[in-house]
């Protein structure tokens, strides 16, 4: 059983997945940030691989990516930083990024390396399901990685079922068809999540985009297995002098 499966088996409520950008705020922040997240009670770490043209991210996350790129972050450098991370990080870690840098690194080499160092799954929002099925799924599965698709309020029921079927690990429910970090009308979000819940999907559902505090987290957790926080956390650590303390405070404010 892999780490994501084990996690959802032991905990199916109020799962918190925190997004952070690799190499942000400093090039060597990647591991300290991951360590702090684990210590402060994060259930999953979603590690963003910076890209020059991140279509599905909002300005805060794009800007953190630009900083990381300026810091010298690359996929090769990230794998080097993560080489021994399983000696200290036990919670599931998934990599999130865009197809182009992964293709340049070499898709198979990427999956093989990620799996070898102990990464659990991938989110590549611009990999369409047709190409996933025809070209990439076999490679991803061969290396035992989970692959997580996104669904939005605009995704038809038929398509949600299809993407759920193709996903392993969990399903990423974008809380509104919009960019990360924007304020949401949570009533509408709750209605949408209820709709998803009624579909009785095979995968656990985590809600992303627009989760920023205790209230939005609880609201999202009511109809889903938990949520993903990105923008708010990036903002919190952006100018932090003490990542460990900031992360602890941040997660306390969301969880308690």
């Amino acid at each position: 059983m892999n780490r994501l499966e084990t996690l959802f088996k032991t905990k199916d409520q109020e799962i918190i997945n925190v997004y952070c950008t690799a190499g942000f705020p400093e090039l060597e922040s990647t591991l300290p940030v991951m360590r702090s997240l684990q210590q402060s009670g994060a259930d999953i770490i979603e590690l963003g691989m910076p890209y020059s043209d991140p279509l599905a991210d909002g300005p805060v996350i794009q800007s953190s990516g630009s900083t990381a790129l300026r810091n010298g972050m690359t996929i090769a450098k990230l794998f080097e930083q993560l080489r021994d991370f399983r000696k200290e990080i036990a919670i599931p870690v998934i990599l999130m990024g865009y197809m182009n840098p992964v293709l340049q690194f070499g898709f198979e080499k990427f999956c093989k390396t990620a799996a070898a160092i102990g990464v659990d799954g991938l989110i590549l929002p611009d990999l369409p399901e047709r190409e996933f099925e025809t070209e990439y799924r076999a490679i991803i599965q061969k290396h035992g990685l989970d692959f997580i698709f996104l669904v939005t309020p605009e995704t038809s029921e038929e398509r949600v079922r299809k993407l759920d079927k193709l996903s392993t690990g969990f399903l990423y429910a974008v809380s509104s068809s919009s960019i990360t970090g924007k304020d949401k009308d949570f009533k509408a979000v709750e209605k949408y999540l209820q709709r998803l819940q009624n579909l009785k999907l095979k995968n656990p559902v985590l809600v992303g985009f627009g989760i920023k505090d205790r209230q939005t987290f609880q609201s999202a957790s009511k109809y889903a297995n938990g949520a993903i926080i990105g923008t708010a956390y990036i903002q919190a650590i952006e100018s932090s002098k003490n990542i460990e303390a900031t992360t602890k405070l941040f997660l306390e404010s969301v969880l308690k």
Binding site: Y51, L55, I75, N100, D126
Partner: peptide, 20 residues
């Protein structure tokens, strides 16, 4: 080199690390 930019696979000017 072959790559993905703005939603399609094509030839794209990029670094070895796949940044545009």
């Amino acid at each position: 080199k072959p790559g993905i930019l703005h939603g399609s696979k094509s030839l794209v000017m990029q670094t070895d690390d796949g940044q545009i």
